[in-house]
Nucleic acid binder design. Structure first.
Lengths: 214, 214
DNA sequence: ACCTGAACACCGTTCAAGT
DNA sequence: ACCTGAACACCGTTCAAGT
């Protein structure tokens, strides 16, 4: 009769609660006990819906895969499709910063993961890529995307001008910067002009897409 | 008089012990208490040489940066220098699989980190890259390298033929693979021909280097 | 200055017991 | 079938006390 009775615990509800905790409390503070509390239950009850914490993480990662915009196999503008795919991945992973670094390291790929990779391969194959080349093409793109997000993730600022300020702090903390003249150059330039992740990301993505042809 | 007396605890010895533990016991099993035990001391003594666990990780990451082969600023063959740099990074990070994903997410860059990035920027600047282009160039390369290692890290096999076997297992575990025809194609092809990380890595690296010019 | 014992506030997971 | 209480074997870190 109470609302809690009407909505019995499911894997989906456990994952949703964990996702929200990761989102607001920070990923590292995500514990079985806290997920359980968020869902109104004792920690041990979670084990009825999830094999263990590792399985819970697998589930979370697959939720994130589900948010990626999959490319359309057969899209005549395959480069456009790949570009949209990449930008969608970046947007989603910036929303779930904790997920970068987990995405490609899960051992058991979930259904959304499979769906997404299938669509990517399909789009490349139908665009005329030979099998091996399609593997190469998706591999280099994904490596770039995940690696870029890895760099972007750690940064405690959002706008170019904030970046300038952070750079200044960092510079002040390092003794004897004269040993690193080229780094000094980067930092002073950055502090002046800021750093724009959008154009930086687009630069590398375009470079890679320019080098790919069926 | 005992050997323990002759070698008092230092930050370096703490880091060395932690590195060894990460290497053999697996990174996730690395705890302050175990590092302390490995160095013959109680856990709390570590805090005299390391601010906290986060600081210990910063230290470990910088040890790894120290193993990277830095490019030579002024090297006339800058593409060769970048290629050697990339392959050295891959070799080191395959030796320290736990480090991938931590490298670019540390907030406080250590001296080896600074040294390495300074050498990279220096090599590109002296090769004729304008400042902004040097930043672009190093950014796209590093994103690719770290991202590739992220993908490579998780894999529980070393040779292409082992890979085939693993693929078969995975395939058997996924129900209704007919929903993912292109993935089925990848898996059957992979199971046949195997997957060679060396050539895969070289493909993407060459593609990126081909697109970079001062 | 460096090390320690005891304690605090946590973890993931197992297991027998409840309903 | 699902949930729970108590317990086990751990964590990182603080703090007062030792030398």
């Amino acid at each position: 009769m109470s609302p809690r009775r009407r909505a019995p615990l499911t894997r989906e509800r456990v994952l949703a609660a964990a996702l929200e905790l990761a989102h607001e409390g920070g990923f590292e503070s995500l514990s079985m006990r806290k997920v359980a509390a968020a869902v109104g239950v004792e920690a041990m009850s979670l084990y009825n819906h999830v094999a263990n914490k590792e399985d819970l993480l697998d589930g979370l990662v697959d939720v994130v895969f589900g948010e990626f915009e999959a490319p359309e196999p057969g899209d005549p503008d395959w480069k456009g499709a790949m570009r949209r795919r990449a930008h969608s991945m970046r947007a989603v992973l910036n929303r779930h910063r904790w997920a970068v670094g987990l995405m490609e390291s899960r051992v058991a790929p979930g259904p959304e993961n499979l769906r997404f990779h299938d669509a990517t391969m399909g789009c490349l194959r139908l665009a005329g890529f030979a099998f091996r080349d399609a593997v190469h093409a998706s591999s280099v793109q994904d490596a770039y995307i995940y690696g870029f997000l890895l760099q972007e993730r750690s940064l405690p600022f959002d706008t170019p001008s904030e970046h300038g300020a952070v750079i200044e702090v960092k510079r002040a903390n390092v003794p004897d910067m004269t040993r690193f003249p080229h780094l000094v150059e980067v930092m002073t330039e950055m502090a002046k002009a800021g750093y724009d992740y959008d154009t930086e990301f687009a630069f590398g993505l375009d470079l890679i897409l320019a080098g790919l042809e069926p």
